[in-house]
């Protein structure tokens, strides 16, 4: 399979930069797999797991929360608010995320903000179950 350039950056550092074969992105409208020569698209992210496949043998999973994925002709760039390798994500970390999200729901000023925060909370809970931790 043909390779394309992929970068995952968080405000503090670059987590991944290199050529990959496919990337699964947790987009706001659902999961999507990006392959080479994907049409240019720009999507917001929901909290979830980015699966990077450098080759059939080499896969990597990273947790991301908040941010954007930008598919350009030159490659894919993910700007994440928070990103860390899945191995570093433990029960305590995800519990903290869920607690933050719950506070967001409580603090939300209007209906729209509360709906968005509630959506994020649901996504985090689903993720927790999916990962089995």
């Amino acid at each position: 399979m043909a390779a394309f350039h992929f970068e995952l950056v968080s405000p503090e550092q670059i987590l991944f930069s290199g050529d990959v074969e496919s990337v699964v992105v947790p987009g706001s409208e659902g999961q999507m797999t990006i392959l080479k020569d994907h049409a240019p698209v720009m999507t917001m992210l929901q909290p979830g797991v980015v699966e990077v496949e450098e080759s059939a043998a080499k896969r990597q999973r990273l947790f991301v929360r908040g941010g954007f994925a930008d598919v350009a002709p030159t490659g894919l760039t993910i700007l994440a608010e928070l990103a860390l390798p899945i191995e570093q994500l433990d029960a305590a970390a995800i519990a903290r995320e869920i607690k933050n999200a719950e506070e967001d729901v409580a603090d939300a000023a209007d209906g729209e903000a509360r709906r968005m925060a509630g959506l994020k909370l649901d996504q985090l809970r689903q993720l927790k179950e999916a990962l089995g931790i």
Binding site: S28, E29, A39, M42, T43, M44, P73
Partner: peptide, 27 residues
């Protein structure tokens, strides 16, 4: 490098801009 008009946005350009701009200020 080419026309940018074919850019698709999910959920929509307005929504993305609405989150992108505050984020840009923080950055």
């Amino acid at each position: 490098a080419g026309p940018q008009a074919s850019y698709e946005a999910e959920p929509g350009q307005e929504e993305i801009l609405a989150t992108l701009l505050p984020r840009n200020i923080s950055v």
